[in-house]
């Protein structure tokens, strides 16, 4: 084996991708809900690794923090609250498996064929060698983008910067903040313990 010829980027991509896909399959084919949750944790963690590889380090860390550290803890919390003996592993009957696997397989074939259909997507970036992921350094550009500055498009013409969609993401950011606040209040309202009038 010619160790020197290995593209380590691809090697680690394959590693993370394998973990992500295998454990995603684990989520699907396991019938124990707690194990499903654990497999999901590993799958999403490996996906965060893929994000790091693609140079999106902030998104990767966000994935670890919010998705894996927050959302999934919440999910497991829900699992434990409902983990009675008969709900821990619920079997699906064979016919449903067959149908969903056929549909899913067809869908997978479609998506994969689409993924390789565009030449631009399947040809590597010629600058990859000299670019290097370490220099991506994207945290502050992402932050500036969220408060309404597009520092990654500074080479554009004056008119283009003022075109719609070029002004950063301040507005969506604010909307999402308010949305999250509403979600928090709504979820807390729905999940609270209800005292029945009769009891």
């Amino acid at each position: 084996m010619l160790l020197a010829a290995i593209n380590w980027q691809t090697f680690f991509f394959a590693l993370f991708a394998l973990v992500a896909c295998v454990f995603a399959a684990g989520v699907v084919f396991s019938s124990n809900v707690v194990r499903m949750a654990f497999y999901l944790v590993i799958s999403l963690g490996a996906t965060a690794g893929l994000f790091f590889l693609a140079g999106a380090e902030f998104v990767g860390a966000m994935q670890l923090m919010i998705y894996v550290g927050g959302t999934l803890v919440l999910l497991i919390f829900g699992v434990m609250l409902t983990a009675q003996e008969r709900f821990v592993s619920m079997k699906t009957n064979g016919a449903e498996w067959v149908v969903s696997l056929v549909v899913g397989g067809a869908f997978l074939v479609l998506l994969v064929s689409v993924a390789f259909s565009v030449d631009d997507w399947s040809s590597p970036n010629p600058n990859q060698e000299k670019l290097g992921v370490v220099e991506a350094n994207s945290a502050s550009t992402v932050g500036a983008g969220l408060v309404g500055l597009r520092v990654d498009k500074l080479d554009l013409e004056e008119g283009d910067l003022q075109a719609p969609g070029m002004s950063g993401y301040l507005f969506p950011f604010v909307i999402i903040s308010i949305h999250l606040l509403v979600v928090l209040i709504g979820a807390a309202y729905m999940a609270r313990t209800k005292r029945r009038a009769s009891a």
Partner: peptide, 27 residues
């Protein structure tokens, strides 16, 4: 392993995760 990474690599992984999620939702 000696090929450089492309967008297609990621798209395939995205597709696999997506389809696994769909099957999971269905079953």
């Amino acid at each position: 392993f000696d090929q450089p990474l492309t967008v297609s690599h990621y798209l395939v992984i995205g597709a696999v995760l997506f389809v696994m999620g769909v099957i999971c939702m269905a079953t």
